[in-house]
């Protein structure tokens, strides 16, 4: 198999413990512990785990915003030491700049990379077209619905043409139907462009519908406790995959791994 696009090798991240009570020995909190994972070229991997298990910490390290306390992160075979152009991230919040039009928002990353105005404009319009926002280039974020704003955020992420997309619950703030439409768009875009994706989610069905592989993390300190391949067809068509009978076998498995039933009892 080819060299992995994204790789975490024995990554541990500790943060200083700010609200430590008296007598507590440890002066730091371990957010993630000994995480080793790799995502192959063009693969979509979902990461599921309880709240506060350090998923977002992993993502920050992947994008170079945060450095591991020990271990290494590699993207395209290069050790990640700072934010780099191979990786782009997308969060639950759209993070659109309210003072910029949608087109200017999509151009944001290109502008920082000092791409010529005419080129970045062309690229932005092309992506807006792909993301079904062609009529809204000159609108401002407040004029768009949540789903459209998230599409614009997607266009902005794709504009810098990263090889790896790090996504932190990008659709979790959307209503159920909009969410499915955007999942469909993502599924299609990812397979059309061959992007590599690490996708954090709380939504078990979303994980199964979108990914090739699912990783399950434990409570803090977060570590990967289970990994399985989603052996279902139609990764590029999440709507179709959702209705596949095979989905039913994965969801209860995930529920038991995450102790969801016990929490309810």
């Amino acid at each position: 198999m080819s060299e992995p696009r994204l790789e975490f090798r024995d990554v541990t991240k500790r943060f200083p413990n700010r609200n430590r009570s008296a007598g507590e020995a440890e002066s730091y909190v371990t957010a993630v512990k000994d995480v080793t994972l790799s995502v192959a070229d063009g693969e979509v991997v979902s990461l599921i785990g309880p709240s506060g298990c350090g998923k977002s910490t992993l993502l920050n390290m992947g994008s170079g915003l945060d450095l591991p306390s020990s271990g290494d992160v590699y993207v395209d075979g290069e050790r990640v030491e700072r934010p780099n152009e191979h990786v782009a991230f997308m969060l639950q919040k759209d993070l659109l700049l309210p003072w910029r039009s949608i087109r200017e928002n999509v151009e944001f990353g290109l502008e920082i990379k000092q791409v010529a105005p005419a080129d970045r404009r062309e690229r932005a319009l092309e992506l807006l077209d792909k993301c079904h926002l062609s009529g809204f280039a000159d609108h401002y974020p407040h004029q768009l619905s949540g789903g459209m704003r998230q599409r614009a955020a997607m266009a902005r992420t794709l504009a810098v043409d990263p090889s790896v997309l790090l996504m932190d619950e990008p659709f979790s703030a959307l209503d159920a139907q909009t969410k499915m439409v955007l999942q469909q768009d993502l599924g299609e875009t990812v397979s059309a462009t061959g992007k590599t994706v690490l996708f954090i989610t709380h939504d078990l069905i979303e994980a199964v519908a979108l990914s090739d592989r699912v990783l399950v993390m434990s409570q803090r300190p977060g570590t990967i406790i289970e990994e399985f391949t989603v052996d279902l067809p139609d990764r590029s068509d999440p709507m179709k995959r959702r209705s596949h009978p095979g989905v039913a076998q994965y969801v209860p498995k995930l529920m038991s791994l995450l102790h969801i039933g016990e929490a309810a009892a």
């Binding site: 170079g64 915003l65 700072r82 782009a88 919040k93 993070l95 944001f108 920082i112 810098v160």
Partner: peptide, 17 residues
């Protein structure tokens, strides 16, 4: 919003940018 700062940083923005 710190995430906004992180977004700019993830695009490798300089302090001035």
């Amino acid at each position: 919003d710190h995430d906004l700062v992180n977004l700019a940083r993830s695009f490798n923005a300089s302090r001035l940018q």
